[in-house]
Each structure stands twice: as structure tokens, then as C-alpha cells.
């Protein structure tokens, strides 16, 4: 029951993007299409889960004074792994996400969970927390990518459902900010109601 709570809090109540507003840079940059959003979300989930596991395993060995650099090294190692794996097996998505894959290192969500959760809890809880937070991130990114893709290029997951060009501005930079702003406003409204 408790683990279930750890899992679901990341999805809605403490959604890292819409409620905690962490990790905004990749959110805005890679959500030009649903596939890109999903790819980025899953890559980040992998890094989150693995770094949460290792940090919670090593939490008693790492001295408090150097914990932040130690966490960054652990996180950077997993980011490098996912970067190389995606380059090998998913070259298309790797190409379109570009520089934002190595930048998962400085995504505040990952370091934030390490500091706020993994260094205080056991391995199982940390794994579940990482998974929930990661999937919450992936969910928000996919929703945002879908909205921008539908409005901007009249397609969804690369499948074109209508002829024409769509409202180009939504695929470009300003559209990212505007869609994100309205999504966050809706999320705030919904949470306040509860």
C-alpha cells in the first residue's frame, strides 16, 4: 500500500513538471512531437531509477560533505550509458533529442530525488519513487508533445490525420512556452479543486 503511494505521487500529486516545476529545459525543448517527448521521458526514467537505486545503496558509504559531487558522478555515469545505448539502437530519436540527452545530468529532477528521497529511504522505496517520478515526467512530456504535434503539424505519433500545415507556431519555440503555461494553469486548477 505504502509502495503504491510512493509510485502514484509522482504521476499526479507531485508531478515533477506540472506541480514541482523541475526540469523545465528538456520539457520545452524536446516536445515538438509526441515521440520525442516519450523518448526523452523514458531516457530520464531510466536514469532516475538507476541513480536512485545506487544512491540508496551507497548512502551509508558516501560522506555527507561530498555527497552532491558523488551523486553527480553516479548520475553522469548512467546518462552516458543511456546516451550510448540510444545512439546505437535509436539513432533517429538520439539525433532529434541531440544535446538534451547529455543534459539529463543537470536535470534538477534527478538530483532532486537523490537528495530528497533516495538518500533517506531503502532500495525498494527509492526504486518505486524513481519509477513513479520518471513516468510522471514521461507522461507530462508525452501529453505536451502530443498537443504541440496535433496543433502544429496535424499529426499524432507521426501519423497524419488531416491534410494541411497546422498552426506552425506551436512546433516553434514560442508555442512551447505558451502550451506549457496553459497546461500548468490547468494542472493548478485541478489540484486546487481536490
Amino acid at each position: 500500500m505504502n509502495q503504491w503511494k510512493n509510485f502514484t505521487k509522482g504521476l499526479i500529486k507531485e508531478n515533477p513538471i506540472l506541480v514541482l516545476v523541475l526540469g523545465t529545459c528538456p520539457t520545452l525543448a524536446v516536445t515538438t512531437s509526441a515521440v520525442n517527448g516519450l523518448g526523452m521521458g523514458l531516457a530520464t526514467t531510466f536514469v532516475l531509477v538507476m541513480s536512485n537505486i545506487f544512491i540508496s545503496l551507497l548512502k551509508n558509504l558516501i560522506s555527507d560533505n561530498i555527497r552532491i559531487p558523488a551523486y553527480i558522478v553516479i548520475i553522469a555515469a548512467f546518462v552516458t550509458i543511456i546516451d550510448l545505448v540510444m545512439q546505437a539502437y535509436l539513432p533517429d530519436i538520439h539525433e532529434s533529442l541531440g544535446i538534451f540527452i547529455p543534459l539529463i545530468v543537470v536535470n534538477c529532477i534527478v538530483l532532486g530525488r537523490a537528495e530528497a528521497f533516495a538518500n533517506k529511504n531503502n532500495v525498494l522505496s527509492s526504486t518505486v519513487d524513481g519509477l513513479g517520478m520518471g513516468l510522471g515526467f514521461a507522461l507530462a512530456l508525452t501529453v505536451m508533445g502530443s498537443i504541440r504535434e496535433i496543433l502544429g503539424s496535424l499529426s499524432i505519433f507521426g501519423y497524419k490525420f488531416a491534410e494541411g500545415d497546422g498552426i506552425l507556431i506551436f512546433v516553434l519555440a514560442p508555442g512551447a512556452f505558451i502550451v506549457f503555461g496553459f497546461l500548468m494553469a490547468i494542472a493548478q486548477k485541478l489540484i486546487k479543486k481536490k
Binding site: L172, A173, P174, F177, I178, G181, F182, I186, Q188, K189
Partner: peptide
């Protein structure tokens, strides 16, 4: 009410980005 804080800031940034285009 719903747009107060970060949401309106993001929308403003969107308009600024449009100007920069």
C-alpha cells in the same frame, strides 16, 4: 486566478520568444 505565478510567466516568455523570432 489560475494563471497567476509561473503559468503567466511562461506565456509571457512565449510572446517574448515570438518577438525574438
Amino acid at each position: 486566478e489560475g494563471l497567476k505565478g509561473t503559468p503567466i510567466a511562461l506565456i509571457t516568455a512565449g510572446l517574448l520568444a515570438m518577438a525574438f523570432m
